[in-house]
Write a protein that binds this DNA or RNA. Structure first.
Length: 644
DNA sequence: AGGTTAGTTGGCAAT
DNA sequence: TATTGCCAACTAACC
């Protein structure tokens, strides 16, 4: 081990912020302060994995930037000489330089939970060891440390709420929140006179969200040279469209408002909250704060427990209990984290995952044979019709107003109600399109401001009846389900404004309205719905598709393969299924990263695949497809999206 | 925390 | 008062 250049008595500490963008109830930050450091550098490193390889739309970028700005000013409020230092370089290259230049003795961070973060942190710990820097990593993102949960669950993934609850009981009471620090140490000297390492050029999964050149890594300290949080402009990302704002200050205000409504908090029952409500929404909307760590999960947990106890003593009634209560919702979150902690990367994919069923969905993922992992940014188009359905679903042009309203709300605002997620997920997978749940999960990853790998993968598995839940005949109707909550379809009028003047009677099924009424209400129902005075006909007969899907689900359950079965990996599963799927023979993969000249002169990176008989047609995910006569509907769709 | 259909039951008012 | 029609509310079976 090389000897440090300078020996000081007091620790010199880097606090590495990642998904814990808060000062309150941070066990890791407390540990850093307990070192009684001579100086504390609060840093953020601009990880190329997140910049290019995670799917992040403008709304989540903005939310992250909100969190960083708020955190920085809260740090400065405690110490005017301190702030959040945003370094435009990946952690694996910059941290060793900082340790050396800033004479760091300790690096402290909250233990990460997702597969990528944990793999990255292992590398960082090895590098730190080599450099003689001590690493302090403390769990703080979940009710219990998920690795402890797995251990107390017999070393297995938590696949039911009961398993999580039993493991939790064995682990003892959840820690009470730690108050925020009252002071923070000064920064050390900001020496940045070292070479700036650029990330290795890679596939940019967020290219479709950029309107300008990406300047993420132009300088180490940002355009103002002050290590301040970036702007969307610096990232070349289009403006955000959501009204939801991030940051610890907003998070605490929002939480306190909820807890102040004691009846709401104590009697909350998720299935009784309206998915059609949007302003205000029926649930807490705290999930994005928990995702970025701008709100501690234990702070909210204990806030609820205290309100529930008081409510039960008050004689006003009986508080709700898990699984439907607010506490139950937090437990579900920990259950998914427990499964993800055990299974790692394989939790968020079918192939190689022993815990999930194999169902022969359309548009399956492509596997990297070397790593056994799904290749992000690509998938097989094994059925052209399903690809059209998928694109129409993604951009809210299915012709089912309830589904389209939700998908447009998701794209615009980055958040939809949990039961709305049920509705669109059921529709895309087992109750409509029969498209792979991994395609849906990728769209949610791109557009949700509260995207959390464990919860997203888990919920898609649940809703597609791939794991956690198996009653596949419980299909959500795009008409009957929203009618139960809102007969007049206000959510449709808001997000599908071309239908705003339709009578209540037809708001969820406008194709049934007489032509004269369609004319009167200013919106004709036409096949492609390609101008602003038209809306598309439903892209299929729903009950027909529902029956077809039920047959296929039953078949898949009878065949009984799971993600880790050899037959799933080698493709021989096909011999066990009937030939009704319509995907004939093998599909072929184009080279990922090939450059494809787009119609508008732009160069697009090919990230998807071709199907037999269509060898000359590549696909660019999230961008315009190359012209294809067989996809008139899709071209109309693209035109419509560009206009909106 | 799904939806449909067919069948039953019970209240109510018209005849 | 008995019969009839109507319908809302409920249940069971099925997908």
């Amino acid at each position: 081990m090389p000897a440090p250049k300078f020996i000081t008595n007091k620790p010199r500490v880097i606090y590495w912020f990642r998904t814990d963008l808060r000062l309150h109830d941070s066990p890791a930050l407390r540990a850093a302060l307990d070192l009684n450091p001579e100086c504390l550098y609060p840093i953020w490193t601009w990880d190329p994995h997140y910049v290019y390889h995670a799917r992040v739309g403008p709304n989540r970028w903005q939310y992250l930037i909100d969190c960083q700005n708020d955190l920085s000013s809260r740090i400065t409020a405690l110490n005017p000489k301190s702030r959040l230092l945003v370094l435009r370089e990946g952690p694996e290259t910059i941290l060793p330089k900082l340790w050396k230049e800033w004479r760091i003795s300790h690096i402290v961070f909250e233990k990460d939970t997702d597969a990528y973060g944990r793999e990255r942190d292992e590398k960082i710990e090895r590098l730190a060891k080599e450099a003689g820097v001590k690493v302090v990593s403390i769990a703080g993102r979940t009710l219990w440390d998920s690795d402890d949960v797995v251990e107390r669950n017999g070393g297995k993934a938590t696949m039911t709420l009961a398993q999580l609850q039993t493991a939790g009981k064995k682990l003892g009471e959840i820690a009470r929140p730690i108050p925020p620090p009252e002071t923070l140490p000064n920064l050390g000297e900001l020496i940045l006179g070292f070479a700036h390492t650029q990330p290795i050029a890679a596939l940019d999964l967020n290219a479709s969200h950029r309107s300008e050149a990406d300047k993420s890594y132009e300088t180490i300290a940002g355009p103002n040279g002050d290590l301040g949080p970036p702007t969307l402009e610096e990232l070349g990302i289009r403006p955000a469209t959501t009204r939801h704002r991030g940051g610890e200050t907003v998070a605490l205000e929002q939480m306190n408002k909820i807890l102040a409504d004691k009846t709401y908090t104590a009697t909350f029952q998720k299935p009784n909250t309206a998915p059609t409500a949007f302003e205000p929404q029926a649930t807490t909307l705290l999930s994005p704060h928990h995702h970025f760590g701008s709100l501690s999960i234990r702070q909210f947990y204990w806030g609820i427990v205290d309100v529930v106890e008081e409510f039960n003593k008050s004689g006003k009634g009986k508080a709700s209990v898990p699984p439907t209560s607010l506490i139950g919702q937090l437990e579900f979150r920990d259950m998914y984290f427990g499964a993800h902690a055990k299974l790692g990367y394989s939790f968020s994919q079918t192939i190689g995952n022993p815990n999930i069923r194999f169902i022969p969905w359309y548009l399956p993922s492509v596997l990297d044979d070397k790593t056994g992992r799904v290749i992000s940014g690509t998938y097989y188009i094994d059925n052209q019709e399903a690809e059209v359905w998928f694109q129409r679903w993604k951009f809210g042009r299915t012709g089912f107003p309830w589904i389209d309203a939700l998908m447009r709300q998701l794209r615009q605002e980055g958040w939809i109600h949990h039961l709305g997620r049920h509705a669109v997920a059921s529709f895309l997978t087992r109750g409509g399109c029969f498209v792979h749940w991994e395609r849906g999960a990728e769209v949610f990853e791109e557009w949700l401001i509260d995207h959390e790998t464990a919860c997203n993968a888990g919920n898609w598995q649940w809703l597609s009846c791939t794991a956690f839940f198996s009653q596949f005949y419980r299909v959500y109707s795009p008409i009957a389900f929203p009618k139960k909550w809102d007969k007049s379809g206000n959510i449709v009028r808001k997000y599908v404004p071309e239908l705003k003047d339709y009578d209540d009677k037809y708001i969820y099924e406008p194709w049934k309205a007489p032509i004269a009424d369609q004319r009167k209400w200013g919106c004709m129902i036409k096949d492609d719905g390609s101008d602003e005075f038209t809306y598309p006909k439903p892209m299929f007969d729903f009950s027909e598709r529902r029956e077809w899907c039920l047959r296929k689900m039953k078949e898949a359950y009878d065949v009984g393969l799971h993600g880790n079965d050899e037959k799933v990996k080698d493709g021989s599963w096909r011999s066990l299924f009937g030939d009704e799927l319509g995907n004939k023979g093998d599909v072929k993969l184009m080279s990922i990263g090939d450059i494809d000249a787009g119609d508008n002169g732009a160069e697009n990176v090919v990230t998807a695949v071709i199907s037999p008989g269509n060898e000359d047609k590549g696909t660019v995910i999230g961008q315009k497809r190359k012209a294809s006569k067989s996809q008139g509907t899709l071209d109309g769709l693209v035109k419509r999206i560009k206009k909106s």
